[in-house]
């Protein structure tokens, strides 16, 4: 198991706010790795830095043996790295199908129909609403669309930022089932969650972020059983 993604000593600032402080971790091919931590710990900042929306002052990010900092943000997705951002950020004025096509922006036209079919088999609800404007979808459907859109680029590594945020428990369960399904099909996953219980139970490994620093790491099982983690993130 070689690391597909290696993050080494990144420091990210918003002006004078030091949001991510010397974070290092890696994701091995075929794993589900989770970053957990309280609101404001720096999870989204970390993901946004990996995907090129933000930049680190130090260190390096290596994805499949390439240094990502050499590339502008819009070149990252064609390397096989896709992100489902926090708050979904689908294109609300476009239709479901147009959103999915935007996800395939860097792909040739040839495979699009097969890719759409693949996404629709994972999310049948999206197929029923394919001509509907995305802004009219429910929250859960929007999350499915955001995930489907990311999958259209055939990612080797899929990064998900709080996919369960604001969803009813039944939908959360459904989203986690899909994550496991994608994992079984060979996609490596980096999952950011506040819902630590759910995230750790599907993850091979996890890292705990606190105010911009990684304070603990271990296998999903170890973290679930750790008394300190239980106390801080799993409600006792």
């Amino acid at each position: 198991m070689a690391p597909i993604l290696k993050v080494e000593d990144i420091n990210v600032y918003y002006g004078s706010i030091h949001a991510v402080k010397g974070v290092s971790f890696e994701v091995n091919e075929g794993e589900i790795v989770t970053l957990i931590g309280a609101n404001g710990a720096g999870k989204s900042t970390t993901l946004n830095t990996i995907s090129g929306l933000l930049h680190s002052k130090t260190g390096s990010i290596t994805f499949m043996d390439e240094h990502l900092s050499r590339f502008p943000c819009h070149k990252i997705v064609s390397k096989g790295l896709a992100m489902v951002p926090e708050g979904r950020r689908i294109f609300l004025q476009m239709t479901v199908q147009e959103n999915l096509e935007m996800g395939a922006f860097t792909q040739g036209k040839a495979g699009i129909d097969a890719d759409l079919d693949h996404v629709f088999s994972l999310f049948p609800r999206l197929e029923e609403r394919r001509r509907q404007v995305a802004g009219t979808l429910s929250g859960g459907e929007q999350q499915m669309l955001a995930m489907g859109r990311a999958l259209m680029s055939h990612p080797k590594l899929l990064m998900l930022d709080e996919p369960s945020m604001g969803l009813a428990p039944i939908l959360v369960e459904q989203i986690f089932e899909i994550i496991q399904e994608l994992h079984k099909a060979g996609t490596t996953i980096l999952l950011v969650e506040q819902n630590a219980q759910a995230a750790l139970s599907v993850a091979d490994r996890g890292y705990v972020l606190e105010t911009g620093r990684i304070v603990t790491s271990g296998t999903g099982h170890e973290l679930l059983e750790s008394p300190a983690i239980k106390k801080a993130y799993l409600g006792g």
Binding site: L53, K75, M83, M102, G103, T106
Partner: peptide
């Protein structure tokens, strides 16, 4: 609509 999301699409 969203420049950040557009960049994530490769635009």
């Amino acid at each position: 609509e969203d420049k950040g999301a557009a960049q994530l699409m490769g635009i």
